[in-house]
Design a binder for these strands. Structure first.
Lengths: 347, 347
DNA sequence: CTTTAGCACTCATCTCTATCGAGTGCTAAA
DNA sequence: TTTAGCACTCGATAGAGATGAGTGCTAAAG
């Protein structure tokens, strides 16, 4: 997919991309000549421009403007030209320090990670919590709230905690709740959603077992919905950065993007489509199948415990995104979360 | 604070406010004459304009433009002129129906409520979860994740569920965890943060009790932080509506507001300042002490179980907000949540 | 004292025009 | 293949009217 370009074309394309990312205005042949001595004249650059435009790497907004990279141009840049550096060590340390200052709470980690990512990449950040592909029962707890209501807390193997209120048809005491939860804890131990469902279907509940039946049903439902796409919680931050980008001065575009960012389900679909199994994935403009993101780029990475609980995180910004920095930021935060998760859940 | 105005001044002010809210453009004397027959000429209206301007209810953007309500004008409108209607019954039913379709889960309720509020009031919505002023212990559960890690789940009297990971310095079995949690459940039963802390301070833990000591400490910490302001989770929705408002075509303003809306802690401060104990509170423009919201209005309402768990919800939009509709929407959603919460937690 | 017609005045907005200049594409020579 | 030269394009910027909505004031009428 990525052809070969002559050395000089590469150099020129690289300059255009970098310059455009930095200044947000079309890059002219003179600019390149003066600011970057390439040893050739502006006319030569223009000839190259013409060819690069022909080949689809560059485009010009109007007949008499400089050149701007196309999605294909950015793609070539990301693939071949971009120098990938790590985040500066000082920054790494600062971030790591922040993580060690907060308590061992997944929710807090996610918030912090989203904030850090947004700040570091100066764009909107997205994080989908790591989640096992298969739900596996670990523990259930029933807590009496009032005579007629109770709280069910379900913990799955991936340490996700699910809670749900229950309304009873007749008064139920805490002892009864404890009895049922104890029983179910043994019955469902380590079961996946299928197994649990099988048990429920195989059991004939008498009228006395109404509570047990209800709780079992709820557990199976929760496990199934946990396995379904579209239920992962998503953390976001840095939406304001979007509005700072000159490509979004026309409010209408900004609104489109913000709309996507605000809607949980679209975002879930986008993130779960990402093929982030191995390392970082960059999605540039129209490469995405979502029309609303035609002007945007995504830098995504998977993280979590391979095979056990996979999460996705990344940043979203205009196509004119500082890819180098974004990639380093995303990679660092992903590896940091990997560390933290491993320390907690890994053996 | 709210003076009396002559009938005619009231009528004129009302027209200006309504017309400006509807059209977003300054209202001229002719417009009023033609569109609303008041039986007087434009010149008379102009005289009244002049006085209303003098009194601070109206202002003009430029010397030769129509009039626009000031914050004081809106205030008068909200206080005296606005006809408060309930939400149309069909809408009420639709909303209620949506709530009954989802499961009994506070998180889901909050999400839905935020979505409904945003859609109904066509503006950004905010919801702070109901939370007891005093944390009161209800239940703790310790679940082994691996040999060296565990999950602590703490349930408080207001049914809030808090989780935290724990890392042990030496392997701990589930039996030991259960033993400790059982003990603490008895020891802390119904205690508030102070009492729990007192117990912890009064106890001398031997080396064998390291786990118990650690867990107790964590519980006290969690309870204290639960009582502190600034830890309430906030649900938001409809941020895009902000960008639809003509007052925010200049991106810079939109960014300021979005910044506030995105930052949890500022928002928490704003919401917790609101005096929403009894009914609806409308904060108009500069009445708010937050400079960033000088151009915005808030319509807030308290909800929850009085004295037990108080939440705040409301909408945020430009000063030029359809107050009538916003108030009805906020009031309806608040009462709906009250119903739901009562049914669950009330006796 | 209040209302109103009349009128001059203000000022944002729109349109038209001219100018500017960055940047191009092409041609012909090196 | 490279480069100097040059005409050309076209967006951006600025100024000049023209427009018109809306005002404030005055003086007369009710």
């Amino acid at each position: 997919m990525v052809e070969d370009l002559t050395e000089r074309k590469q150099a020129i394309l690289g300059i255009v991309v970098r310059e455009y990312i930095a200044t947000a205005r079309p890059v002219g042949s003179d600019t390149i000549c003066q600011r970057y001595g390439l040893g050739v004249s502006a006319a030569t650059i223009r000839n190259e421009f013409a060819e690069l435009t022909e080949m689809g790497y560059l485009m010009q907004p109007h007949t008499s403007a400089g050149r701007v990279p196309t999605a294909k141009g950015y793609r070539y840049f990301v693939e071949k030209l971009m120098e990938e550096s790590d985040l500066p060590l000082s920054e790494q340390l600062m971030i790591r320090h922040q993580f060690h200052q907060i308590s061992l709470d997944l929710d807090q980690w996610m918030r912090l990670a989203a904030a850090v990512l947004a700040r570091t990449a100066q764009s909107a950040s997205l994080i989908a919590v790591p989640q096992a592909r298969q739900a596996r029962f670990r523990h259930v707890e029933l807590i009496s709230i009032s005579e007629l209501t109770g709280l069910m807390i379900l913990v799955l193997q991936d340490s996700s905690v699910h809670q749900q209120m229950m309304v009873f048809s007749k008064p139920v005491a805490q002892e009864e709740l404890s009895r049922v939860s104890n029983k179910l804890n043994q019955q469902f131990a380590n079961f996946d959603a299928h197994q649990a469902q099988a048990v429920v279907q195989a059991t004939t509940y008498t009228e006395q077992d109404a509570l047990e039946a209800e709780v079992s049903k709820r557990i199976v439902e929760l496990m199934q919905s946990h396995e379904a796409q579209g239920t992962r919680e998503i953390y976001r931050d840095g939406l304001v950065h979007i509005l700072r980008q000159p490509e979004f001065i026309e409010i209408e575009r900004a609104r489109q993007v913000l709309q996507v960012l605000e809607q949980d389900n679209t975002l879930q679909a986008i993130l779960s489509e990402a093929q982030v199994s191995n390392g970082i994935q960059v999605i540039i403009g129209n490469e995405s199948k979502w029309a609303e993101l035609r002007d945007c780029s995504l830098v995504l990475s998977g993280y979590g415990l391979p095979g056990e609980a996979n999460g996705v995180l990344g940043v979203l910004g205009p196509m004119r995104m500082p890819y180098g920095r974004a990639v380093s930021a995303v990679r660092y935060v992903a590896s940091l979360l990997n560390d933290l998760l491993h320390r907690l859940y890994g053996e």
